[in-house]
Design a protein around this nucleic acid. Sequence first.
DNA 1: ACAGAACGTTAGTCTTCGCTTACCGTAAGT
DNA 2: ACTTACGGTAAGCGAAGACTAACGTTCTGT
Lengths: 112, 112
Amino acid sequence: MANGSAQLAALADPTRREVFERLRAGEASVGELSRGLPVTRPAVSQHLRVLKEAGLVSDRAEGTRRVYRIDPHGLAAIRTWLDQFWGLALEAYAREVERGANEADDSRGEKP
Amino acid sequence: MANGSAQLAALADPTRREVFERLRAGEASVGELSRGLPVTRPAVSQHLRVLKEAGLVSDRAEGTRRVYRIDPHGLAAIRTWLDQFWGLALEAYAREVERGANEADDSRGEKP
DNA sequence: ACAGAACGTTAGTCTTCGCTTACCGTAAGT
DNA sequence: ACTTACGGTAAGCGAAGACTAACGTTCTGT
């Protein structure tokens, strides 16, 4: 585990992203999250389960309510995965821009 | 535009992630990508179209072959989206850890 | 000009998944 | 103890999407 598979899959759904982005403002219960969303409460509950299994949110029991918050653990997984590409892609992109701007440096063996 | 919607949706599929991760090793044609994958070549072609529309890859014509590479533009979109949560989540996490263990580590700017 | 290789595209099938309705357990208030 | 609010779970349905097979297009080599 700990690659970004589950996290990326979880954040693919628009409604699930909306729930997740709503938690950016702070902790919230299921009922609070359901209000203002075009889906029913059970749907939100199912989305929260997926987000929780992906390590993107964590829940805490507060009386009869379940308070959800963003879990940085899942976020770190995506960031780690993303950083595997970041350096290489930026490097390649810089080479491309360099080629367009016609810099005096050309040091890469390309096929004819 | 330029939120991470299309990018996250594109990277949700396991096969599409596999194609994308394979491009981390460098440019590759469709045929090269298809070899070693459990799906047919048209499937890879369709996946590449989705990745391209998400700005995650760019293609270049080389004779009769299409060479694909990673496009940092789409990667930047995800990173921007991710950074909206990174600071807040880390901050909240730090508060939580602080409450439990009272750490004395300071990595980023915290807010009063 | 012809043959072959490399890709993109379309139509169609089948699985996956997001949503709702209904039900059940649990904690707090009276 | 009874009632009420809150939320997770199960079953069933409909839509989205991933895959294959077949076809059409474009470029290279002989």
